[in-house]
């Protein structure tokens, strides 16, 4: 597995874990009451930080393991990696645009801050998830 595929997997794994954790924390804090009353900012900031840290840690540990097996190609990359990265970027971009439009619509409707912030956050999270899946599928199934 090449360096950029490992990074794609690491980001995908970190996104799934941290997004699941964030949703679980919000649901636990709301305890069946109106979820928009939950103090969403600290868990959101922790989720963003933890997601970045976790993907870095997974990439480093996986990179060390790969480097022990095959030191020469552990960090190699080429034009296929750039093509796959561009594909993932395009997929991510489309979901960010959808989230951005959702935020504008919520602002226009005078929605609560909770829904505005979490729509944007969900846009980031879903774009990272779908972009990661697109990259991993392109590495596994092919890019022609």
């Amino acid at each position: 597995m090449v360096y950029h595929e490992r990074v794609a997997w690491a980001q995908l794994i970190a996104s799934v874990i941290t997004l699941t954790g964030y949703i679980a924390v919000l649901l636990m804090q709301s305890r069946g009451s109106d979820i928009s009353t939950v103090d969403w900012l600290p868990p959101m900031l922790w989720t963003i930080g933890a997601g970045i840290a976790l993907s870095i840690v997974i990439s480093i540990l996986w990179g060390i393991a790969a480097g022990l097996r095959d030191p020469q190609s552990a960090t190699a990359s080429d034009i296929r990696d750039r093509d796959i990265s561009r594909l993932g970027g395009r997929v991510e971009h489309s979901f960010l645009v959808i989230a951005g439009l959702g935020v504008i619509a919520l602002c226009a409707a005078g929605a609560e801050l909770f829904w505005i912030a979490n729509t944007m956050f969900l846009g980031f999270a879903v774009s990272a998830l779908v972009g990661g899946i697109a990259r991993v599928v392109a590495y596994r199934r092919g890019l022609v």
């Binding site: 090449v2 190699a76 034009i79």
Partner: peptide
């Protein structure tokens, strides 16, 4: 040819269309 072994495998299997240069 200056690519990773994984890229060559993908080209051989028809899973990646190489650039003209490659």
């Amino acid at each position: 040819i200056g690519v990773t072994r994984q890229t060559l495998i993908a080209i051989e299997q028809g899973k990646y269309s190489p650039t003209l240069e490659i």
